[in-house]
Design a binder for these strands. Structure first.
Length: 430
RNA sequence: GGCAGGUUGCCCGAGUGGCCAAAGGGAGCUGACUGUAAAUCAGCCGCGCAAGCUACGGGAGUUCGAAUCUCUCACCUGCCA
């Protein structure tokens, strides 16, 4: 099992692999799709709307699935939603607040750079980035209504799950968001015309929007196109995947540090780790089965979590950052070895965990907890200390008035402060 | 536009004059166990070292005392038009 598959596993159906990985939630006629995929390179696309400054790990499911299909010998189009991002697709949480064009444009540029990281832009199956603003912006209202709108039937549009759900909600649904499915349908048709794109990928919540496209292509061109959705990733306990106490796990290192990113994956529950590996790892079937075996026979070794965290962090942040955060994680959670960590590694580790500068004179533990962000108020800090959850340099502190001594400083200036088992931060004394 | 009901802490939700910093549940935090997992058990869970302060949609009032009563404004829901 090498990390670099020399030959794309062409004949073995990519659909079979996706199915095994649990990556297929719904698709249009699977036999037709399988036939199309087996018949040589096809062009397919997946879209990303700039609704935030960065993609998050939920988006990674789609991106990596696109990459898998590309590796199987097909041509991906990474669509960024310069137009659709200005409109916003309807979601259950309610009507969106429209973002300004300048904001959307900036987010679009950032998201485009992210999408580019996960697809291969060289070789015979080179990817291409497309922006739906290119064909949506020039279109006038008359053309839109005559050429596109005429193909859409109200009954069909109203029956889309999210549309009817929103119509039945207290909040209702604006015409703007209602129209979203038409825009996305147009995208697919346009890509079909420009590049012969015959398959659209999306998250399962996008199913209605994907089928808008296949139907439009059938009506406008009389041709069949395909849609395939990836499932919503869930946690074993049913809570939302991809969130931590501090919020969404973003792909942007500025928004979620590589350290936090690695920790997120490392902390995956046993019950979910095998299914996550199938979704997020490019390891082969045998290797993944061996890892699954390890989880059941030696759960304490956390091999699956280690493998998952290392691979996904490498994918998103690169090998150097990953090596650094692995070292950091070991040092900060290792017991009593902090003094043996060299200064550069410690500094890097604490930087990843969140390093806070504090001026002399040395504050007490309560203030250190607050300064480091591990406690939001002095009351909370005191509570934590009383509960026995406060540690400095892996040493439990029970006295709220305790002030670390100069001799405690690692390399003359650092303190590793930890709340509970997992929340760690660094203090640098100036 | 008329009538009725509602707006409580991160969320749900009890509370109709003092015993309310506010029941109960969920979420969250800490400890024990352990494996930086899950489950379980225990404690905690507005701010403040404390005195105390701030809080029950906003504002004004009644009262010794208000989440609870009155007025007013805003928003939500139901019925009527």
């Amino acid at each position: 099992m090498s990390d670099q598959p020399a030959v794309p596993h062409l004949p073995a159906s990519v659909l079979d692999d996706l199915r095994w990985r649990g990556l297929i939630a719904q698709s249009t006629d699977e036999h037709e799709l399988a036939t199309a995929l087996a018949g040589g390179p096809i062009t397919f696309y997946g879209g990303f709307d700039p609704t935030a400054a960065s993609l998050h790990i939920g988006n990674l499911v789609l991106l990596l699935t696109m990459r898998r299909i590309q590796e199987a010998g097909h041509l991906p189009l990474g669509l960024v939603g310069g137009a659709t991002g200005l409109i916003g697709d309807p979601r259950m949480s309610g009507e969106r607040v429209l973002n300004g064009p300048d904001v959307v444009a900036e987010w679009l540029a950032r998201i485009q750079r992210q999408v580019e990281k996960y697809l291969d832009f060289s070789g015979p199956f080179a990817a291409r980035i497309v922006n739906n603003l290119d064909w949506t912006a020039p279109m006038g209202a008359i053309d839109f209504l005559r050429d596109v709108g005429k193909h859409f039937r109200m009954g069909r549009m109203l029956s889309k799950e999210i549309v009817s759900a929103r119509l039945n909600s207290d909040e209702g649904l604006s015409f703007t968001e209602f129209s979203y499915q038409i825009l996305q349908g147009m995208d697919f048709l346009e890509l079909y015309r420009r590049y012969g794109c015959v398959l659209q990928l999306g998250g399962n919540d996008q199913w209605g929007n994907l089928t808008s496209g296949t139907e439009l292509i059938r009506k406008a061109e009389g041709k069949a196109a395909h849609a395939l959705t990836t499932p919503l990733i869930t946690k074993a306990d049913g809570t939302k995947f991809g969130k931590t106490e501090s919020g969404t796990v973003w792909l942007d290192a500025e928004l979620t540090s590589p350290y936090a990113f690695y920790q997120f994956w490392f902390n995956t529950e046993d019950a979910s780790v095998d299914s996550y590996l199938k979704v997020f790892s490019f390891k082969g079937r045998e290797e993944l089965q061996a890892i699954a075996e390890a989880t059941s026979t030696r759960p304490h070794a956390r091999e699956a979590q280690r493998a998952l965290a290392a691979e996904v962090t490498t994918l998103v942040h690169g090998p150097e950052a990953t090596a650094a955060v692995i070292t950091a994680s070991g040092a900060l959670f290792g017991r009593g070895e902090l003094r043996e960590v060299d200064e550069a590694t410690l500094a890097a580790a604490l930087h990843e965990a969140g390093l806070h500068e504090v001026a002399r004179p040395m504050p007490n533990v309560v203030d250190l907890l607050r300064e480091s962000g591990l406690a939001t108020s002095s009351s909370e800090a005191r509570r934590t200390i009383a509960e026995g959850g406060a540690n400095i340099n892996n040493q439990r502190i029970g006295d709220p008035d305790h002030i670390p001594a100069v001799a405690d400083l690692l390399h003359g200036r650092y303190l590793v402060i930890r709340r509970g088992k997992r929340a760690v931060a660094g203090i640098a004394i100036r």
